[in-house]
């Protein structure tokens, strides 16, 4: 059974908060309160760009208990897949979007005696919600925030004002100020948790250093801003429905099936629950298994696929649907 809990929202405000960074304030069209969430959660924003449906995840940065609006901040990227460019260049106040329920893949470990956040650039956003939550819970935290320069950095003045300079340390690349990772990681009390969000290189660097210094894996947390995996266009023959559909570059098989008006079972849409597992009756090409549900031997068998996230590199696949 498919259950849609997406919410229709309207853009209430767009604010340029720094060079190439805009904040979008989203309110519900039906006027109901938005769900409370936990710091670190993201939403998937669905935007209709002409005829094209784009779906991108963004961290929620507003206060987790503020049910009047959600706020996201978006960086304008050079080689946009389309989402960032659409939000920056085409979206106006009053426009409507669809958002998913909040989902947290980057939660705080609330047992931590102390929490250290390390942010690089737009990676600051999940920490804004986390710090709001931790302040309410009187948790001990500090933020180390690296930006390119004072113009491109977002929110650093507000954060220093709100949480005081001894808890919010800022660093600017062009001023040759860098996070002193070694010194920070080497001198922490037991029970400290570390959270990193930013460019992949930064995350790898920090995590490798922490591991080398003997930090337990359970105390290290990170979130990478990866674009959803696109792929080549291919055909999917739906045997039972007697239909052949085309799966687009930025479309999952499940989305293409739904676009064709066929009801397929799903729950998580994230490759985890197994609900959309579908038998493969034939395949001209290689299945790219992107799920975490199937065991390696199931994936190797080529007989089954999670249609919410996995796709085909090649010509076509035949499914028992």
């Amino acid at each position: 059974m498919s259950i849609n809990t997406d919410m229709a929202v309207q853009v209430a405000a767009i604010i340029q908060v720094a060079e190439k960074v805009k904040r979008f304030r989203l309110v519900r069209v039906d006027g109901l309160p938005l769900p409370v969430f936990s710091g670190g959660a993201h939403i998937v924003v669905s935007m209709l760009d002409g005829d094209l449906l784009r779906r991108n995840p963004y961290s929620l940065m507003s206060s987790p208990t503020d049910q009047t609006a959600y706020e996201i901040s978006v960086l304008q990227v050079e080689k946009s897949r389309g989402g960032s460019a659409f939000l920056h260049e085409k979206l106006n106040v009053g426009d409507k979007l669809t958002i998913s329920q909040p989902l947290n893949l980057f939660p705080c470990d609330v047992r931590g005696r102390k929490h250290i956040f390390m942010a690089g650039g737009i990676g600051i956003t999940p920490f804004m919600a986390m710090m709001d939550q931790m302040t309410r819970e009187s948790s001990n935290f500090e933020l180390h925030y690296a930006m390119r320069d004072r113009k491109h950095g977002a929110y650093w003045q507000e954060l220093q004002q709100r949480y005081a300079a001894h808890r919010v340390k800022i660093y600017f690349d062009v001023e040759k100020l860098f996070i002193p990772t070694d010194a920070i990681l080497a001198n922490q009390p037991l029970g400290t948790h570390l959270y990193v969000c930013g460019p992949s290189g930064m995350i790898d660097g920090v995590l490798n250093k922490a591991t080398a210094l003997g930090w337990p894996k359970q105390n290290l947390h990170s979130e990478r801003f990866l674009a959803p995996l696109p792929g080549d266009i291919f055909k999917a023959e739906l045997k039972r429905s007697k239909k052949t559909i085309t799966v687009g570059t930025h479309q999952s098989i499940l989305e293409a099936v739904e676009a064709a008006g066929i009801d397929a079972p799903y729950l998580c849409r994230g490759g985890a629950c197994g609900q959309c597992e579908t038998s493969v009756l034939g395949c001209e090409g290689i299945i790219e298994h992107n799920d975490i549900f199937l065991e390696p031997e199931d994936k190797a068998s080529g007989k089954t696929i999670m249609i919410c996230v996995s796709r085909v590199k090649g010509q076509a696949i035949t499914l028992d649907l």
């Binding site: 809990t5 329920q101 065991e295």
Partner: peptide
């Protein structure tokens, strides 16, 4: 039977507003 491995994977991804 692998029931608990599957159930755990499923639950870790349980979403707000979608109880099971």
């Amino acid at each position: 039977m692998g029931v608990f491995d599957r159930a755990l994977k499923f639950l870790l991804n349980l979403q707000q507003s979608k109880p099971v």
